[in-house]
């Protein structure tokens, strides 16, 4: 039992190490200009388009339920007009980036792993290498850059839609005073909350792309291998998003309060 847990743990750590190596390879490919920026537009468009609807729906309903729950609790102590402030702060610094990250992991991370995994098992990755093209330059780096560009945009969309939906629910349905609620929201949401959310979203975007590509490139043989790579990409990137989010919150809050 204990040895099984220990071997799982070492396995996970090895995976993390290999993802870090892939990240390093991709960074050096970008910095040394080996990569192919021509593919960037395509991947940016593709990632954005694929995840926009699901990110918007997630953002909207999270904002709505958050507004309702906060209102139900705060109404008891007569703090109705703080509802939007709570929604906005949590959407900006936590829920926006994390939920968008999880959704993009499910949509984009999975498709990256499936695509590269299929290329791997059908020898297309070997064909790239034989044609003197580094798979990291051609496949990983453009996806990594695209994901880190798109992810903050998606997060901003999700936050805006979430706040808007919360406003509609709070003001339209629950009858909160719009002027006070809006004023409180602007007053209590700090620039740091927004910046923290954006920093997180950049990191989550990179994580999803790296894990998706890593799982695809290291796919085992056959259709089963591709299936497993896809599932593992989603699970692994979701968990790393959730875990790293906690530490990012600690570190970033510390940083912001110091300065």
């Amino acid at each position: 039992m204990i040895s099984a847990i220990a071997s799982r743990f070492t396995h996970a750590m090895e995976g993390l190490g290999s993802v870090a190596l892939l990240a390093q390879e991709a960074m050096s490919s970008i910095v040394r200009k080996h990569w192919e920026p021509g593919l960037l537009l395509y991947h940016t468009y593709f990632i954005g388009l694929k995840s926009l609807s699901v990110v918007l729906i997630t953002g909207a309903f999270t904002g709505m339920v958050l507004a309702a729950q906060t209102y139900f609790q705060f109404h008891k102590v007569g703090m109705d007009t703080a509802t939007l402030a709570i929604v906005s702060i949590s959407m900006c610094s936590e829920l926006g980036p994390v939920l968008s990250g999880l959704m993009v992991a499910g949509r984009v991370g999975a498709s990256m792993a499936a695509e590269l995994g299929t290329m791997k098992v059908t020898e297309q990755i070997d064909a790239l290498r034989a044609l003197a093209t580094h798979p990291v330059d051609y496949l990983v780096a453009p996806r990594l850059v695209a994901a880190t560009i798109v992810m903050p945009m998606l997060t901003v969309c999700s936050i805006c839609v979430g706040i808007l939906a919360a406003y509609v629910v709070g003001v339209g349905l629950l009858g909160i005073d719009p002027a006070y609620a809006w004023h409180n929201m602007i007053h209590y949401t700090s620039v740091e909350d927004v910046v923290m959310g954006l920093i997180k979203s950049v990191i989550f975007g990179a994580l999803v792309a790296l894990v998706g590509c890593y799982k695809g490139l290291n796919c085992q043989q056959g259709a089963e291998g591709v299936g497993r790579a896809t599932t593992e990409a989603v699970v692994f990137s979701s968990i790393t998003i959730l875990i790293s989010n906690f530490f990012l919150t600690l570190v970033l809050t510390r940083l912001f309060t110091k300065s």
Binding site: H34, M119, T122, E123, Q124, D126, A127, L128, R129, A130, L131, A132, T133, H134
Partner: peptide, 20 residues
Amino acid sequence: RQLLDVRKEFGLLFQSAALF
């Protein structure tokens, strides 16, 4: 990365063709 330069002089037809 060092191998890429070596491979520029090589062409390989894969058994499975391995088309993109």
